[in-house]
Design a protein around this nucleic acid. Structure first.
Lengths: 327, 327
DNA sequence: CTGTTAGCGCCTTCAC
DNA sequence: GTGAAGGCGCTAACAG
């Protein structure tokens, strides 16, 4: 692979001049520019980006840290981030943290040594202080870092949950249970809060209608089984995410309860699978792609030292009404 | 961020010595080593990997090119690759190519300029010649590059298809249609071939039983609709991938045909969604994670100049018998 | 065992 | 307009 020196020799100029035409920096005569371009052409020269990074301290590379790319929520997010980054000439390093603080810190360590310019973080494993200690700009998605200093993209979880529950009431369901997410996760807490906002004061409400889960399908199925056993008069389930909702549907169908007549299910997230099962899942959809794209744009602005018009963006969830609720 | 020079000064030695203790290369007295380590400690020094890369020509970074991470097949593959790479101290850059040759070439271009050390390629957009032109080691997965020189991980597509069809016959299904994948893809061709191997000679066979698709659910649903209209006596569908199989199931269920009694469906891939729908999808499962992990290990061996025990690994598919076929 | 000195390939003053 | 030279931070001979 040719380097800048060879180009300069072939063109009969100095490396500085070649550098100038490469970066369009400073003046260079049209004729010499042509010579340089020709030399570049014939040698099929491509600048060595590592060398450039060493003198620039810019690598045009960012990190994307997700708990697990296999979780159906994240591929769409990753795609969005990658698309935007690609568009702006950045490259994206994928990291799976399994939500382990140690793994995340070690990852960030290495990435910083590699001079990444920014990080998009979907995690709640790290404390705000730990995140603040990072040397590169960070944008956090979804699982909010409780810190004013880290820009975030979040959704109106609580409000969305309220909407979902209100919708069920509107449709005539009378006893609504809630499959809640993992207790450490803020979004699970918020969604549960939203559920409570609506039902807490209703006469049929009972704390036993809230069952804790782990955002996984299996657990959702199992929790639903126990739930129906204890509270056979439940006629609707609001799950804190789609995977648990799908688990719930499986249990309900196995029990032979007709959906949506005798039992309604509403999920949260809007992952693609929801539209593949039958009946299709009614869900509070997050604009997943948009969230990723927005976070990516924010990060780029930070990297390029532009100001953010807002540190905290809250995007809106939207109800997708499908087959697991009656009309 | 401190650099090696500051460390050397604080320790009262030369940068070479610091470099030696860093890399455990060459001899260094225990005492001076201690001094250096202390200096590193107090300055919280971390070597600048970009500088190191410039002099080494090693970045411990690889690229992973997939058509689209949102396609349910790829997250598991990506996770496998990333896990193994992480284990060996490599970092993974994610690329979505949309199967576009131009995009892939441009990507590889940039990655090579960034000194990536290897590439895992899942694609059939590029010709063998184009792939051979890459400067870094490449391992191709699934969509085989028809070139002896590029190591590959593939599955026994044809055989798997044969197994699937034979299985349907064993279960008493008598007229089996095939939803085939995109014509450009080798794996689609092979799976179709395997189907034909079994049914071609049977008296009920008719070329109209093969319908072309694009590996997407929607298309699978639509194709099934047309298929059943034209051939109402079809009692089993072998789809070339799970997404189309799921589409088929949807159509069949909408038509009110009981699965698996009146109609069987078998997919191919073994993606997670297959186990989430009801009835659960019977499918020829590829060991997706293993394929990714294997490819990653092969790539690392190539990067580290070890010999490969075999250029072409063919892993075995396995039938997962579930609810869309009768026992 | 340890220090000096070239590079690695590019960018960026600072003169001319 | 252009070139010489130093610097980015680290590694790798080559001397001692």
């Amino acid at each position: 692979m040719a380097n800048i020196k060879e180009v300069s020799q072939l063109a009969g100029v100095s490396v500085a001049t070649v550098s100038r035409v490469l970066n369009r920096s400073g003046y260079v005569h049209r004729d010499t520019e042509q010579k340089v371009l020709k030399a570049i052409e014939t040698l099929n020269y491509k600048p060595n980006l590592v060398a450039r990074s060493l003198s620039n301290k810019k690598t045009r590379t960012i990190g994307l840290m997700v708990p697990d790319i296999m979780n159906p929520f994240f591929p769409e997010l990753a795609r969005a981030v990658e698309d935007v980054m690609q568009l702006y000439g950045y490259t994206t390093i994928l990291c799976n943290s399994d939500e382990k603080a140690e793994k995340e810190k070690q990852y960030v360590q290495v990435l910083e040594q590699k001079y990444i310019e920014g990080l998009i973080l979907v995690s709640s494993a790290l404390s705000p202080e730990e995140v603040n200690r990072f040397e590169v700009p960070v944008v956090a998605i979804d699982r909010t870092i409780a810190s004013e200093k880290v820009p975030t993209v979040t959704v109106n979880n609580r409000e969305g949950a309220q909407q979902a529950v209100r919708f069920l009431l509107d449709r005539g369901y009378r006893k609504i249970a809630h499959l809640r997410g993992p207790s450490q996760l803020l979004n699970a807490e918020e969604r549960c809060r939203g559920y409570l906002d609506i039902v807490e004061k209703l006469d049929w409400f009972h704390p036993g209608l809230i069952v804790s889960g782990d955002y996984e399908m299996k657990q959702g199925a199992k929790a639903t089984e126990e739930l129906i056993q204890k509270h056979p008069d439940v006629d609707a389930i609001f799950a804190a995410n789609d995977l648990m909702a799908i688990g719930a549907i499986r249990t309900v169908q196995k029990l032979g309860l007709p959906i949506p007549e005798k039992m309604a299910v509403v999920g949260y997230d809007g992952i693609g699978i929801g539209g593949m099962i039958l009946p299709e899942l009614t869900t509070m959809a997050q604009p997943i792609y948009d969230m990723g794209a927005l976070a990516a744009r924010m990060l780029i602005r930070m990297i390029e030292k532009h100001s953010l018009d807002s540190m905290h963006h809250e995007v809106q969830v939207q109800l997708i009404e499908r087959g697991t609720t009656r009309r």
